[in-house]
Design a protein around this nucleic acid. Structure first.
Length: 566
RNA sequence: CGGGGUGUAGCUCAGUUGGCUAGAGCGCUUGGUUUGGGACCAAGAAGUCGUAGGUUCAAGUCCUGUCACCCCGACCA
């Protein structure tokens, strides 16, 4: 492709409304152009990358017996009523009314379409297992589209659905797909970690997320570098070291003027944060209060707590606290009667500390040498702590660290939820009718393009992995010397004949512009031909990932490129 | 959905207490000089000042509605 003919060009400034690195670089380099928040045009360069990403996914899905199909985007609303998701997903559903006042939904996902579709063709256990997938556009009215291609309202997605006679067969297939997913991310040049999905209080526990490490990621992953265990921060488990053991002392009251925060409290009593007994109070959705007792230097994980309670919670308002006679800043589980409508649960971390300092439920009055079991009791101990760097891996006891990541894909064991909703049954070999067991597997294709840019760039521009680069070679002619122009042209023709993907910057413009554009666009290999290189009968060879360049003779160039391509 | 911010040329942005024919840089067109890290000279094209209404002798500028975009929060199968 000649750059002078390419639709979409680089620009000097990134757009003013681009926040994320991927939006900035992809727009500035001429890969995409925003139409509206979370809605993007893909220009030729961007489309070539997307196509390559999709083809990698296709190869990997085909390799696990997935069969590609294409389902519609426009869904009659009744199938969404059937599963109840017309209501539960209402906020993100784009809806439209057709003639005759018929309502349609723009598909945010395709369980509602694929289940009745497949049900028409499945009668017997002999028809199973089956796996179908599509690469198609999804629509979700995100409350807040942002981060360029990472969170769109219209976006590309590969969604695969598998159908099985029983759970065991699903489990087996699920593991196969995991491997295929790791292959996809690796081939796109990304490091992915599989983690148990965090979800909320009611999440399906049979699902996993593939998190891709990038500094700009929205998610925090707790990682054990030794054994490779990756966990979502919200539900991560880890061991925290207890404090040095000491003898339990008798509890004492201390009159004190202090601030409300743990830090101020610890300072006032001249003890480390960890010796403060912190009590966080939540309101439970169906009424009542629950107090979580935890070490002062640690935080409660809201998601872990909701999972433990199996109820939705929100932090208690000051009014709710006042109503039951609790004094904000001085709350503790000591000497509190459950009759006021509060119960206490303790995080395991408090077992490792003796002689806590805590409030006395009166303003200006604290207690010291408070010990669990002696001075107060809790209903139960639980793991409710938000894990952070310094905790130890639950598997191998190495120190855990945090990394930032973007969710690149996720996989679910759906079980028979959708089969039951649509009556998708099969006759098993015992002659009995049974519901089909389903799994589903998604990868955001357009998001993956954005993620690659987030993970692979420097201050000058994008650094495309060879596997997804729009072209392999960026050929540049410098100067307007006749011989240079002639040789550049014939070199371009030669590379095309050899089947090498090449972008030829044939513009009559300054060297700085061309070289900077090459860095911005980020093709894996830059080949410069100029008067200077011709003097040594060659071209300059520079890989985007390398700072150094070398002169390669024109005679050897094709051979060397073909080796580079591998 | 709550709080905050911004809409002026293709892009990035100026535009004073309301005042004449609305500006700059980049980009674009034409001619010339340049040609290894975003060159230079000359000439030129390009804007319904987001949109609707209002105040005023006069509105890019003030007021109200509305739309879009961005940020923080809520939310995120």
């Amino acid at each position: 492709m000649k750059y002078s003919k390419l639709f979409g060009r680089t620009r000097h400034n990134p757009p003013c409304d681009a926040d994320s690195v991927n939006a900035k670089l992809l727009t500035q380099a001429g890969f995409v152009e925003k139409l509206a928040a979370g809605i993007y045009n893909f220009l030729p360069l961007g489309q070539r990358v997307l196509t390559k990403v999709c083809n990698i996914i296709r190869e990997e899905m085909n390799a696990v017996e997935g069969q590609e199909i294409l389902m519609p985007s426009l869904h009659p609303v009744d199938i969404w009523e059937t599963t109840g998701r017309r209501k539960t997903m209402d906020e993100i559903l784009y809806k439209t009314r057709a003639s005759g006042d018929k309502e349609f939904v723009f598909g945010p996902s395709h369980e509602e379409v694929v289940t009745p579709l497949v049900a028409k063709y499945i009668q017997s256990y002999k028809d199973l297992p089956l796996s179908v997938y599509q690469i198609q556009t999804k629509f979700r009215d995100e409350p807040r589209a942002k981060s360029g291609l990472l969170r769109g309202r219209e976006f590309g997605m590969k969604d695969m659905y598998s159908f099985h006679t029983n759970e065991e067969d699903l489990d087996k297939y699920y593991e196969t797909v995991k491997t295929a997913y790791f292959n996809v991310f690796e081939r796109c040049g990304l490091k992915a970690y599989i983690i148990e999905a965090s979800g909320g209080a009611f999440s399906d526990k049979f699902s996993h997320e593939f998190s891709v490490e990038t500094p700009a990621g929205e998610d925090t992953i707790i990682l054990c570098e030794k054994c490779g265990t990756a966990q979502n921060l919200e539900i991560a488990e880890g061991h925290v070291e207890g404090l040095e053991d000491e003898k339990e002392l008798p509890m004492e009251e201390v009159k004190i003027e202090r601030g409300f925060s743990v830090k101020e409290n610890a300072k006032a009593h001249n003890v480390p944060d960890a010796k403060i007994l912190k009590t966080v109070v939540y309101e439970v959705e169906d009424g009542g209060l629950i107090g979580i007792v935890i070490r002062g230097d640690l935080n409660v994980s809201d998601v872990k707590l909701e999972r433990y309670m199996k109820k939705r919670l929100r932090p208690a308002t000051p009014e709710a606290l006042k109503k039951v006679g609790l004094v904000q800043g001085y709350i503790s589980p000591v000497n509190i009667s459950e009759d006021i409508g509060i119960s206490f649960v303790a995080d395991n971390s408090i077992k490792g500390v003796k002689n806590f300092v805590t409030g006395a439920n009166k303003s200006g009055l604290d207690l010291k040498n408070v010990n669990v079991g002696t001075d107060f009791t809790v209903k139960e101990f639980a793991d409710l702590v938000e894990v952070k760097t310094g905790f130890k891996c639950p598997k191998c006891h190495e120190h855990l660290s945090e990394i930032k990541a973007v969710e690149g894909g996720n996989i679910f064991k759906l079980g028979t939820k959708f089969s039951n909703a649509f009556g998708m049954n099969f006759a098993d070999n015992d002659g009995k009718l049974k519901p089909v067991v389903m799994g589903c597997y998604g990868i955001g294709t357009t998001r993956l393009v954005g993620t690659i840019v987030e993970a692979k760039h420097d201050e000058k521009g994008i650094i495309w992995p060879k596997s997804v680069a729009p072209y392999l070679v960026h050929l540049i002619s410098l100067g307007n010397d006749e011989n240079v122009l002639k040789d550049a042209e014939s070199l371009y023709e030669k590379l095309l004949e050899e089947g090498i993907e090449v972008l030829f910057d044939d513009r009559d413009t300054g060297a700085g512009v061309k070289l900077n554009d090459a860095d911005l666009i980020g093709l894996p290999l830059r080949v410069v031909i100029s008067k200077r290189t011709l003097e040594s009968k060659g071209v300059e060879w520079k890989e985007r990932t390398n700072a150094e360049s070398e002169i390669v003779s024109i005679a050897n160039l094709v051979k060397k490129i073909k080796e580079f391509q591998k």
